[in-house]
Amino acid sequence: MLEITAVRKNYKIGNDIVKAVNNAGFKVEKGDSIMIFGHSGSGKTTLLSIIGGLTRPDSGTVKYGDTDLWSLSDNELSEFRNRRINFIFQFSSLIPTLTVLENILLPTAFNKSGDRNRNFDAKDLLTMVGLKDKFNAYPSQLSGGQQRRAAIARSFINNPEIILADEPTGDLDEETEAEMLALCKSMNVDKGITFIIVTHNTDIAKQCNKHFVMNRGILTPKAMG
């Protein structure tokens, strides 16, 4: 369903050129759970952003089925992200002025077409991540872990084809981490949502069916023992 071919992205910092992503390519099947790990600064976030339609690669293609992501217009790209992709960011990504519930509903604000019915129910999702009594709380009233759980709940709201998760369990305790992992696993298995996860977590790694390692912009498959 997704094919990434010869993707490159360089950054110019002063006189140096950083090859953030250097000729990365792989195929993703529907229902895959793909893990990418690597040192910080190796280009993982940049690669996810290119796959997610957030930053344009210098060269190479990202194809969802027949759709060449980077040949879409900006509006089409926004719609594509809104309907078919979702993200769990590395950083705390809740809007401070919105309640938890409003934060979860945020993607629906940009969907003006009638296909909202395929969305998940925001309250159900919050209940699933254990924030049943926090619908109307503001992010500042939540712990870091709770905020992360809300962000995870939001990544399901539009029932996306693919979730791009950048170190999603960074600030979770072990128990919650296991719960979130189980939730992602069930979304992956039951709903067929594809995951690409950047993580160093070995428990997550065990749940994934394909593994890559990234080193100085170069992506290589890695067999897991």
Binding site: L54, D74, S78, E79, N82, F87, F89, A109, F110, N111
Partner: peptide, 16 residues
């Protein structure tokens, strides 16, 4: 800035 980027990621168009 980050919030606006986030909104874009979640599907906000330029005009939004």
């Amino acid at each position: 800035q980050r919030e606006l980027g986030l909104l874009r990621a979640l599907g906000a168009k330029k005009r939004d």
